[in-house]
Computed example of a mutant assay.
Amino acid sequence: MKIDHASLIGTFEQKREQVRKFNLMDDDFFTVVMQDKGAFEVMLRILTGRDDLHVTEVRTQYTMRNLVGHSVILDGYAEDAQHKVYNVEVQVRDQDYHEHFCEI
């Protein structure tokens, strides 16, 4: 769901109903929720099956510039206590929700 200026206008009830439609596969909602280090850590623990994972740094919509190739914007980037880096990209295809997890 994309948030635009028109969607910000309305009553409290209208706004609450709009928020109820959000889920973590919505890019804007994912970005806001995953700025919380604890939330990102819980998600990574679920995806990796590692209960010992401790996130030390989180960045959402993190841009990695490349002067000689393609630059990328990562939906979620995190580093754990062992300096292992995680890139989480949210993909929505064919109206189904598919999580794509990549460990770097």
Results as ranks from 00 to 15, higher is better:
residue 50 R to E: 04
residue 60 T to H: 03
residue 30 F to A: 04
residue 61 Q to Y: 02
residue 89 E to C: 09
residue 33 V to W: 07
residue 26 D to K: 00
residue 54 H to M: 13
residue 90 V to S: 05
residue 29 F to Q: 01
residue 43 M to V: 15
residue 88 V to L: 15
residue 10 G to P: 01
residue 70 H to D: 14
residue 23 N to Y: 04
residue 92 V to M: 05
residue 84 K to L: 09
residue 8 L to H: 02
residue 31 T to Q: 06
residue 7 S to R: 14
residue 75 D to F: 08
residue 47 L to Q: 04
residue 83 H to R: 15
residue 50 R to G: 03
residue 13 E to W: 00
residue 104 I to T: 14
residue 15 K to T: 03
residue 94 D to Y: 05
residue 41 E to H: 11
residue 78 A to F: 14
residue 97 Y to H: 12
residue 32 V to W: 03
residue 20 R to V: 00
residue 27 D to Y: 02
residue 88 V to T: 06
residue 97 Y to A: 13
residue 85 V to L: 11
residue 85 V to H: 12
residue 78 A to K: 08
residue 12 F to A: 04
residue 31 T to S: 13
residue 77 Y to D: 05
residue 79 E to F: 10
residue 104 I to F: 08
residue 1 M to C: 01
residue 76 G to T: 07
residue 92 V to W: 09
residue 16 R to F: 02
residue 67 L to K: 08
residue 51 D to T: 14
residue 15 K to F: 03
residue 85 V to A: 08
residue 7 S to P: 03
residue 54 H to Q: 11
residue 78 A to I: 12
residue 11 T to I: 00
residue 19 V to E: 01
residue 94 D to R: 09
residue 82 Q to P: 09
residue 69 G to E: 15
residue 19 V to H: 00
residue 40 F to Y: 14
residue 99 E to I: 12
residue 67 L to N: 11
residue 6 A to P: 02
residue 6 A to I: 04
residue 30 F to E: 03
residue 47 L to T: 07
residue 76 G to R: 06
residue 56 T to A: 10
residue 5 H to Q: 05
residue 24 L to S: 03
residue 85 V to Y: 06
residue 4 D to H: 00
residue 54 H to K: 11
residue 76 G to Y: 07
residue 81 A to H: 07
residue 64 M to E: 11
residue 84 K to G: 08
residue 9 I to H: 06
residue 19 V to R: 01
residue 64 M to T: 13
residue 35 Q to T: 08
residue 38 G to K: 06
residue 102 C to Q: 15
residue 17 E to K: 04
residue 25 M to T: 04
residue 3 I to Q: 03
residue 70 H to V: 13
residue 101 F to A: 10
residue 11 T to C: 01
residue 79 E to Y: 15
residue 20 R to A: 02
residue 61 Q to I: 02
residue 16 R to Q: 05
residue 103 E to S: 03
residue 5 H to T: 05
residue 51 D to I: 11
residue 60 T to A: 08
residue 43 M to H: 07
residue 99 E to A: 13
residue 50 R to D: 12
residue 1 M to E: 01
residue 6 A to S: 05
residue 91 Q to K: 10
residue 96 D to T: 07
residue 104 I to E: 15
residue 88 V to M: 10
residue 41 E to G: 11
residue 53 L to R: 05
residue 59 R to W: 06
residue 66 N to S: 11
residue 32 V to Q: 04
residue 80 D to I: 12
residue 28 D to M: 10
residue 85 V to K: 09
residue 79 E to R: 08
residue 25 M to K: 10
residue 72 V to P: 13
residue 65 R to L: 12
residue 72 V to Q: 07
residue 45 R to Y: 07
residue 83 H to I: 12
residue 22 F to L: 00
residue 37 K to H: 10
residue 35 Q to C: 15
residue 66 N to M: 08
residue 103 E to Q: 04
residue 54 H to V: 10
residue 36 D to T: 13
residue 75 D to L: 08
residue 73 I to H: 11
residue 9 I to D: 02
residue 56 T to G: 15
residue 98 H to K: 14
residue 58 V to F: 06
residue 81 A to C: 06
residue 5 H to S: 03
residue 25 M to V: 06
residue 49 G to T: 04
residue 39 A to Q: 15
residue 83 H to P: 10
residue 37 K to L: 15
residue 93 R to M: 09
residue 32 V to T: 06
residue 56 T to H: 09
residue 7 S to C: 02
residue 80 D to W: 13
residue 93 R to K: 13
residue 84 K to C: 11
residue 70 H to Y: 13
residue 28 D to V: 09
